Amino acid sequence: MRIGELSERTEVPRRLLRYYEEQGLIISHRLENGYRDYDEPTVDRVVQIRGLLDAGLPTRIIKQILPCLDKPRSIHFPDATPEMIATLRGELDRMERRIRCLEQNRRAVAEYLDDVLAYDPAAVS
């Protein structure tokens, strides 16, 4: 698929897709006319990248994490510095806190929705 279709399907601007490619996060193949051509799995890859970026991870760390999302794994540990490990631990802790907060908010919204749906205006005088 060409970059325009990938952009539409992932809701990621073309400019960002080109940036992801420059950073080595996604790969395209060049057609004879010079257009970028992306494989179908690139859609999921872009969604994963967006999720990791939204979680606050920088692209340099995302590039190292991406092999963990593939099967079979091909992780390269020589690049794992103590600083990177500390960053990943901090990001993981932050994600866990965010998940707990989102779960609490989801429960509150669900309870509120249940109350709204159960409300019987005829019962109130």
Score class of each variant (00 low, 15 high):
47 V>T: 10
48 Q>R: 15
40 E>K: 04
43 V>A: 02
44 D>A: 14
47 V>M: 14
47 V>P: 00
49 I>S: 06
57 L>V: 10
42 T>P: 00
57 L>F: 15
59 T>F: 08
53 L>C: 05
51 G>S: 08
40 E>R: 12
61 I>V: 15
44 D>S: 10
53 L>I: 12
59 T>Q: 04
44 D>E: 13
37 D>S: 15
45 R>Q: 14
42 T>N: 02
39 D>F: 07
36 R>G: 00
59 T>H: 03
45 R>M: 12
52 L>F: 15
57 L>W: 06
39 D>N: 07
45 R>L: 15
54 D>E: 12
59 T>W: 06
46 V>N: 02
62 I>L: 09
55 A>V: 10
54 D>C: 05
33 N>K: 08
38 Y>V: 00
55 A>Y: 08
59 T>L: 13
34 G>R: 09
58 P>E: 13
40 E>W: 12
43 V>Q: 10
33 N>E: 10
33 N>V: 07
40 E>N: 01
53 L>A: 13
57 L>Q: 06
36 R>Y: 01
38 Y>F: 15
42 T>F: 01
33 N>S: 09
58 P>M: 05
53 L>H: 03
39 D>G: 06
54 D>Y: 11
47 V>A: 09
49 I>M: 13
45 R>K: 15
36 R>L: 00
60 R>A: 10
33 N>C: 05
45 R>D: 03
36 R>I: 00
37 D>I: 01
62 I>C: 05
58 P>C: 04
49 I>F: 11
52 L>M: 15
60 R>P: 00
48 Q>V: 11
59 T>E: 05
48 Q>C: 09
40 E>Q: 14
55 A>L: 15
61 I>K: 01
33 N>L: 09
56 G>I: 05
53 L>Y: 02
37 D>E: 13
63 K>W: 01
60 R>F: 06
39 D>E: 14
54 D>N: 14
43 V>I: 15
45 R>I: 03
53 L>N: 01
